[in-house]
């Protein structure tokens, strides 16, 4: 049904897929141009930044295909049209259903480029890596996704109070885009901000470094605690928002 809906405007669907794929390639192009003018970026070589870029694109594709649009755009729309009540009657967790109701097939289709980029990385740039670092990479990637999901749940909960919360969705997109560069470019207070206060480094920099063999165990412990607390907060905020919604409609 979703596929039928999204394919209804076929030329637009294919052009959107083309646009999304081009956007991914533009990130690679941007790095190529930067490295055309400098051999190193905050200590990162091009082949390592390529890994960082595809890590970022993997995370971005995952969230765009799954929960991002559901929470940022479709949830405010449901609330505005009064269709959220119908969703509450379903025998499913409302948060789960609100977050994964529609799988974005445009992003899913364009994500195939990420697989190709991974293939390109392994055949052109990857040096030997240990199985352990790969597992660590996947775990850290998972924590990055949980961090982004929790953050977006907090953002999306505001839709229960405001009429139109789509601006927050765009804001969220721009914020995660800061993760496409190595956070080592930041110094001083900004470095602290992006590592500890608002750990955007978890999106791509931290997993990529782990993959490349640079580990930082105390930081990983911090990350686990931080993600756990943020998840708890997001759950509380969501429940509070739901409560507010129920009382508003009754």
């Amino acid at each position: 049904m979703n596929l039928q809906n999204q394919m209804a405007y076929r030329p637009s669907f294919f052009l959107a897929v083309l646009g999304k794929a081009t956007r991914m390639l533009i990130l690679i192009l941007l790095f190529r141009v930067i490295y055309f003018n400098t051999p190193l970026l905050a200590g990162w070589e091009y082949k390592d930044v390529f890994l960082l870029a595809i890590t970022y694109l993997t995370v971005e594709s995952t969230i765009l295909t799954t929960f991002h649009r559901n929470l940022s755009y479709y949830l405010p729309d449901l609330l505005k049209k009064g269709d959220f009540d119908f969703l509450l009657t379903k025998p499913l967790n409302p948060l789960f259903y609100s977050s994964f109701r529609i799988i974005d097939l445009m992003d899913l289709t364009s994500s195939s480029l990420v697989i190709f980029l991974w293939y390109y990385y392994f055949t052109h740039y990857a040096s030997a890596f240990s199985f352990l670092s790969f597992i660590l990479y996947l775990i850290l990637l998972g924590f990055g996704l949980i961090f982004l999901f929790s953050l977006l749940v907090i953002f999306a909960s505001s839709a229960f109070w405001t009429i139109n919360a789509t601006g927050l969705g765009r804001f969220f997109e721009d914020i995660i885009r800061t993760g496409r560069f190595p956070t080592d470019v930041f110094k001083g207070a900004f470095s602290f901000l992006f590592l500890y206060v608002f750990p955007i480094a978890t999106i791509a920099t931290v997993p990529s470094k782990a993959f490349l063999g640079t580990t930082n165990w105390p930081y990983y412990v911090y990350l686990v605690v931080f993600t756990f607390i943020l998840t708890l907060i997001s759950k509380k905020v969501w429940n509070y928002a739901l409560k507010h919604y129920s009382s508003a409609s009754s």
Partner: peptide, 10 residues
């Protein structure tokens, strides 16, 4: 066209 956001997005 019914929808034009495809070309505009590109």
């Amino acid at each position: 066209m019914d929808q034009t956001w495809g070309p505009r997005f590109v």
